[in-house]
């Protein structure tokens, strides 16, 4: 549904986005991550047809955003970075205006506006002038505008920015629900959000795409991922260390805690698949009891830091 091919954008001498390619199909929610100034918003502005491309190509459905912008824009809903709207209008008037521009009229328009007001919980403020709304409400008004015409493609630039925890939660549920049928791109700085709503992750750093895969694949890049931690009852640390060395491809055994009753151990291995069951089999054969055994999944923030800072370090060397 969304196809970006070697998309490049330069502002004078600075290259803000450098040959970024990816694809988002209906039913996918792509999480767009990257440090400040990485080029996320710039990429989204090109996808939505606000900024012209310096090079490359973007297809929305069958339409090229540069060659057939009107048809491409019809398919999209867009929540820009700071959720702009016309401050001198009432919520209702603003949504009616957007619906009209989207080509809706008559009862269809009324219905679309009502549905958006309901979905975004704007009923209470529908006649209020946007200028007098709180930041979170202004954000919701702009989001309402983006989903008004039920577009098959949604581009959301930091959709949960400025929302309270309840609204954040609701927004995530909403995006996940809509993501079942639509192609969605969401940029965010909140990594839990990625795990909660995204089916895919793209990380962009200094304008370049440095990761593109599933959240699970991203987690797997964590050095922590695949390690097994276990609390063994009975034997002392020396005994445990000696025994665990027998596991296949062990690279490191860390004694985390040594208590009178049990010892907490962290096992790293270059062979991550089936490590937990190998550990269990070994403990069983020794007739050692344990009260906790689990495989670490790794942490997204750690992976994020590794991927983005690694790349910056290379940049400095050049």
């Amino acid at each position: 549904m969304i196809k970006a091919i070697e998309v490049t954008k330069s502002f004078g001498a600075t290259v803000a986005v450098d040959k970024v390619s990816f694809e988002v199909k209906p039913g996918e929610v792509l999480g767009f991550l990257g440090p400040n100034g990485a080029g996320k918003s710039t990429t989204m502005r090109m996808i939505t047809g606000f900024l012209p491309l310096s090079a490359g190509k973007i297809l929305i459905g069958d339409y090229d955003i540069e060659e057939d912008p009107i048809n491409a824009k019809r398919l999209m809903g867009y929540l820009p970075e700071n959720a702009p709207s016309y401050p001198d209008m009432s919520v209702e008037a603003f949504l009616h205006f957007c619906a009209a521009i989207r080509g809706l009229s008559g009862p269809q328009k009324e219905q679309a506006v009502e549905k958006a007001i309901e979905t975004c919980h704007l009923g209470k403020v529908r006649r209020q002038i946007i200028d007098t709304l709180s930041k979170g409400y202004r954000h919701r008004v702009c989001f309402a505008q983006a989903i008004l015409h039920d577009p098959p493609v949604l581009i959301l630039d930091e959709p949960t920015d400025g929302l309270d925890p309840n609204q954040k939660h609701e927004m995530r549920l909403l995006i996940r629900e809509m993501g079942k049928s639509k192609a969605i791109i969401v940029s965010t700085h909140i990594l839990e959000e990625v795990e909660a709503i995204c089916t895919r992750v793209a990380i962009i750093d200094q304008g370049r795409l440095v990761f593109n895969g599933s959240p699970a694949e991203m987690l797997a890049q964590s050095p922590q991922a695949g390690r097994v931690s276990v609390n063994i009852l009975g034997p002392n640390a020396v005994e445990i260390r000696a025994t665990l060395q027998k596991l296949p491809a062990v690279t490191d055994i860390q004694i985390l805690k040594e208590l009178p009753l049990w010892t907490s151990v962290l096992i790293s291995s270059s062979k991550k698949d089936g490590l937990a069951s190998a550990v269990k089999a070994l403990l069983d054969s020794q007739k050692w009891d344990f009260n906790e055994l689990h495989t670490e999944t790794g942490r997204l923030d750690e992976v994020f830091r590794r991927i983005t800072s690694l790349d910056s370090a290379q940049e400095v060397k050049k």
Partner: peptide, 12 residues
């Protein structure tokens, strides 16, 4: 106000 971004990403 940044509404230019809104206006120019609508089908007009």
């Amino acid at each position: 106000m940044g509404t230019l971004e809104l206006l120019f990403t609508m089908p007009v």
